[in-house]
Each structure stands twice: as structure tokens, then as C-alpha cells.
Amino acid sequence: MLAHLIEFATNHYVLSGIFAVLLAALIFTELSKGGASLSTRELTALVNRDEGIVLDVRSHKDFATGHIVDALNIPHDKVIERVAELEKHKAKTIIVVDALGQHAGTISRELKKLGFNAAKLSGGISSWRGENLPLVK
């Protein structure tokens, strides 16, 4: 299988090159859609300086199993209709957290359209757990 792929790529180098460029462009645009992606260290620094607030967009059930200290919980499908709850935090960076990062980019982009400074936690709450950082239940 791999030998066929290599043979195809060498025989059709123009097509392979175009595919590689298009794939790179797709990855770049998808990564840039959700705005800034923060590490756990950057999230902690923003929150400790009182320049950021954590918005956990997981379901209430998942939130109850463990969340970042002082995180607000608004499920991802309710954020836009409950955006008024975030108005008092407009001067801070809203750091969107979900399970793995699948919804955080979309929510972050929507919040930016509404005038908020938003970013997402890279890797979601699983990256937080992966670094053995504290969770509140």
C-alpha cells in the first residue's frame, strides 16, 4: 500500500504537490479560525493576573465531574443566547474550554464577532488533566 502511494506521488508529482499545498492551507485556516490557542501555562498566567476568565462549554454533567477553579459553565449550544452573562467580563480574555477542543474554536470565533477578546485552551480539559493540574468538583 505504501509502495503504491510512493509510486503515485513520484509519477504524479504535480498533483501530489498541489494536494500538499491545499492540505497545508486547509490546516492553517482551520487552526486560525478559533483565534488564539493557549497552553495550560498561559491560561494559568492570565487567570492569576486577573486578565482572563475561563468559560467551560461542556455539558453540566461533564462540568460536574471536574472543572478549572472559578470557571463559568455555559454549554456550547447555549453560549450565544446567554452571552449577556459574559458582558461583565468583556475587559478580560475569555478562555473557552471544552473536552478536547472540538467546540472551543467555534465558540471563540463567535465571541470575537460579538466584540469579546476570546481564546481557547489547546487540547481542552483533557490537556489540563494530562498535566495533572487541579480540578474542582
Rank of each mutant, 00 (worst) to 15 (best):
I125S: 04
V21T: 10
N11T: 12
G130A: 05
M1N: 15
R49S: 15
G52N: 02
I53L: 12
T10D: 06
E42R: 13
A3C: 05
D98V: 02
M1I: 14
A119P: 06
T106I: 08
L23G: 01
I107R: 03
E7V: 13
L22E: 07
K120D: 06
I80E: 15
H76K: 06
S32I: 12
A119R: 02
N132Y: 06
P75Q: 09
E42F: 03
V47Q: 11
E51Q: 14
K90S: 07
K61V: 13
A9E: 09
G124Q: 08
T65W: 08
S59T: 14
F116N: 06
T65M: 09
L100C: 12
K61S: 13
F19R: 00
V21N: 07
M1S: 15
T65D: 10
T10G: 03
A9P: 03
H89V: 01
V79S: 04
R58H: 06
D62C: 00
V21Y: 08
H4Q: 13
S126V: 12
V96K: 03
L86S: 01
V21M: 11
D70I: 02
L5S: 14
L100E: 15
D62W: 00
G123F: 04
H76F: 11
D56F: 01
I125K: 07
R58N: 06
I80K: 15
G34Y: 04
V54A: 06
Y13G: 14
T93N: 03
H89W: 12
L100M: 15
T106G: 10
S127Q: 13
